[in-house]
């Protein structure tokens, strides 16, 4: 089915850089994720103590979402995220804490992040979004399935917009590409265009 929806704006976080619509927003020489994401948080002027309790995936998703949603007034924004590693980065931490009976220390604060959709909850809390959530796992960024799903949400649910994309954190590597789909925008909401935008920078 041809899409009648468009992409309003998009954001990348990769290679210790943040960009919006392909334009550089922030860059730091820090290559380590923890240092990079903390520097990003500061440069965005955020003051949100919950951020420091989040796991790496949630921090990555939270920053990318915040950049795209900070001036957004529409609250009927569905969140449709995807990645490859699910919450495995935190899963490994929880597993490590239970592997040996002599050194058994499972923590609720870690365990709660062993689900990829927790980052959707974090974003919903910050932006007060009582909206549709879905977290998909694909081997790599899958624009065609995301495009079909977003179009369906905009056609049949009460969502006015969708914040959609890819947020992956695994073994120290990170990659975020989020975009806002709406009735009107700048870029075509097609699989081809999404592939092109994903690869920008």
């Amino acid at each position: 089915m041809n899409s009648s929806f468009q992409i309003e704006r998009f954001c990348h976080i990769r290679n210790h850089r943040i960009s919006v619509n392909g334009e550089m927003l922030f860059e730091t020489p820090e290559t380590d994720f923890a240092a990079f994401i903390k520097a990003s948080y500061k440069s965005l002027g955020l003051s949100y103590s919950k951020f420091f309790k989040m796991d790496n995936l949630s921090k990555l998703a939270f920053i990318a979402a915040d950049i795209l949603l900070k001036n957004e007034t529409e609250k009927k924004i569905a969140l449709v995220f995807s990645n490859r590693g699910s919450s495995l980065d935190t899963d490994r931490k929880h597993q490590e804490s239970i592997e040996n009976t002599a050194d058994f220390y499972p923590s609720p604060a870690v365990f709660v992040y062993t689900l990829p959709n927790i980052c959707l909850g974090e974003i919903s809390i910050k932006h007060e979004l009582h909206s549709e959530n879905a977290f998909f796992i694909f081997d790599s960024f899958n624009p065609s399935e995301l495009q079909a799903y977003c179009s369906s949400l905009l056609r049949t649910s009460n969502s006015e917009k969708v914040l959609c994309g890819w947020v992956d954190y695994d073994k120290g590597k990170y990659d975020a590409f989020l975009y806002v789909v709406a009735k009107n925008g700048i870029f075509a909401h097609t699989s081809e265009e999404l592939t092109r935008l994903y690869q920008t920078i």
Partner: peptide
């Protein structure tokens, strides 16, 4: 078709039915 995996905590099972319905309604 490549498998679509949905992992959305404890709503996953019923959400999966909703997702299937949406893909069908979209003609996918």
């Amino acid at each position: 078709n490549q498998a679509i995996v949905l992992s959305n905590a404890c709503v996953s099972g019923v959400l999966a039915i909703a997702v299937a319905k949406r893909y069908i309604s979209e003609g996918r």
